[in-house]
Design a protein around this nucleic acid. Structure first.
Lengths: 158, 158
DNA sequence: CTTTCAATGGACGCAATTGTCCATTAACAT
DNA sequence: ATGTTAATGGACAATTGCGTCCATTGAAAG
């Protein structure tokens, strides 16, 4: 189990997108600013989220990224998995091949408890749970204006 | 929050020592084998545990490491802290300066839930909870004999 | 068709973590 | 005193994670 920097970035990016208007698309660099993620690094990360099927990507003029599913159908577990982060360290903290309840390693029970808690959290928390903070909060904190840069994916651009 | 490799090593080492006979001492290299921790790396790690006051160290002939406190007075939180591992990632997953319940970042609530669960686990799990698996389990798994190498710290060597 | 825009992919540099080696120091035994 | 033992500490190498740069591809606009 390892919550890396990349994992945190992935959660930030998806949490931000969860607070965009329904079906809205956003460019990587517009997403990088309010989430304080290094732009080029974010691009790589977004690709992972795309191949995992969590978001869609659109190239060229008017392109960007948009969520591929309803908010309540994207779990944090899926997001972390897409970022190559596993909350599961392995079968056993001691690296034993067969470590079960009948013949446990010293850490088995304690490890299982933590494992259960974190897995439950990741599996039952969805992007729908990350809503509520409207984007003005971001503007307040980062000192930028986002409204002009958030565009509808299928919106007719005047 | 980051459960690193080093953190896992620290937990392994302490979990193993928790299953030694009361007050027993063990050499670093004898500890390295059954826990599958790189010997030299373990030595460094043990030093951290010493300065944190969790274990005692004895140099020279008949020396080794022994727990410095009763099992139920050594929490996993203390072990992880000694290994320079903090379960707390920061005040806010978004890196905001002021992120609280009234003006939360999108991840605030979800993040707090995970934080609470892991902290509670680390704080309320002690080495006493890691007992039960006797050392024969280690021998079975690793294919080694430990009995001859585990010695009492104050035992009179014949 | 040409231009512009934004994602994509590969290569590379940097930093932290992890892992190894060796000389030194301290304690015990003979 | 001398030798053996084991922790200590510093230096160093390897690996991994993090971050940047730039050329390419695909798509929309003119």
């Amino acid at each position: 189990m390892r919550l890396t920097q990349t994992a945190e970035y992935a959660l930030r990016a998806m949490a931000y997108m969860a607070n965009l208007p329904e079906g809205a698309a956003i460019r990587a660099r517009d997403l990088a600013v309010p989430t304080a993620i290094p732009p080029h690094y974010l691009s790589k990360l977004m690709r992972h989220l795309v191949v995992a099927g969590l978001i869609h990507s659109q190239k060229g003029h008017g392109g960007g990224f948009a969520l591929a599913r309803p908010l309540d159908q994207i779990t944090l577990e899926a997001v972390l998995a897409a970022a190559n982060v596993s909350l599961v360290l392995g079968d056993c903290a001691f690296g034993w091949h067969q470590c079960n309840a009948t013949k446990p390693c010293p850490l088995h029970n304690a490890w299982t408890r933590l494992q259960t808690a974190t897995t439950h959290w990741a599996r039952h928390t969805t992007l729908a749970d990350l809503r509520g903070a409207d984007l003005s909060v971001f503007e307040d904190r980062m000192g930028i204006s986002l409204t002009g840069e958030v565009r509808k994916a299928d919106a007719s651009t005047p």
